[in-house]
Amino acid sequence: MELIDRYVHAVIRRLPASQRGDIEKELRSLIEDMRAARTGTQAGDPSAIVRDILLELGPPDVMARNYRGEARCLVGPALYETYWLVVKIVALSIAGALTLATAIRLALDPPSNLAETLLLFPASVVSAVVGAFGWITLVFAILQHKGVDVSTGTEKEAKEWNPDDLPPVPTAAARIRLGDSIPGLVFGILFLILLNTSSHLLGVYFFDLSGRNFVPLLDPDRFAVWLPWLNLVVALGILKEGLKLALGRWTLWLAAFNAALNVGTLVLFVSLVQDPALVSAAFWTEMADRVGDAVGELRRVEPLLRGLAIVGVGIGCGIDTVATGIKAIRGYLERATGGAYPGGTAG
């Protein structure tokens, strides 16, 4: 019966190859049994009976789903929250970076076909975001297929879970909200992209009768020496924001990591600012050509400016280190004395 062949094929092609032969045999046997049961009672043409049987068995995809036992999905509920968070962060970062890069490019080097560039911009953002979406989805689909669990270990804890282990609700100070780390993440990724693609655009721009003129600030060769270190610090910063997001509160380890990162940032900043070779040699001569005496004045106060910048960043890092340290220690003390807090066992 051709119709039976088509039905059986439609079911088994949706099943794992290892089960196909067996289930095919089973289905054919079932259909034969149903047919035998009907030809006894039901008169009429055999093909009508087969149609009737197949209608009763239901759509082949439903039948195949019953045999598979579980709904198939690309990214299942266990992974979905993580997946969606990653998609949002990456999409936002890419859209932001592209927008900024395009804006800078348009400002510095207005193309003759401005309208076309502007029209193409949304398309390029959409295609970049869709591309990233596709890659992330692919990675998560593979994780799903392999049965990998990327949750934060809560399932493992659940085995020997004890209500007393519940951390106290963090005080407003110790708690890290979603909104606290998202801007840091987005900004970090954006900064990383700009650092590696657009550092040559940093400089002084003159708009005069001769049109746009640009004096680059950085010496590209010298900057290339620093770039890996900059990348490292920014990447660690992104990692820190990710940890903040995952942990949801300031732990001692996180505060220690933050402190180390602040020290690293400060050291790098001091070294950068004090590297005379970083500013291209052409910068000062060209600036002197264009604006004359003002540059001399600038060069005289330059050491002072460097010093001020270092002190400013140093104070910033120091305050951040101490503030997060205090939050972490307070959180730690709260956890250590958790039972003595209102709602605990003792009063």
């Binding site: 289905l27 149903m34 009763e56 068995l57 239901g58 439903v62 019953n66 045999y67 036992g69």
Partner: peptide, 8 residues
């Protein structure tokens, strides 16, 4: 019961 439920 549907065969499609029982057999699986």
């Amino acid at each position: 019961i549907d065969p499609g439920t029982l057999y699986p």
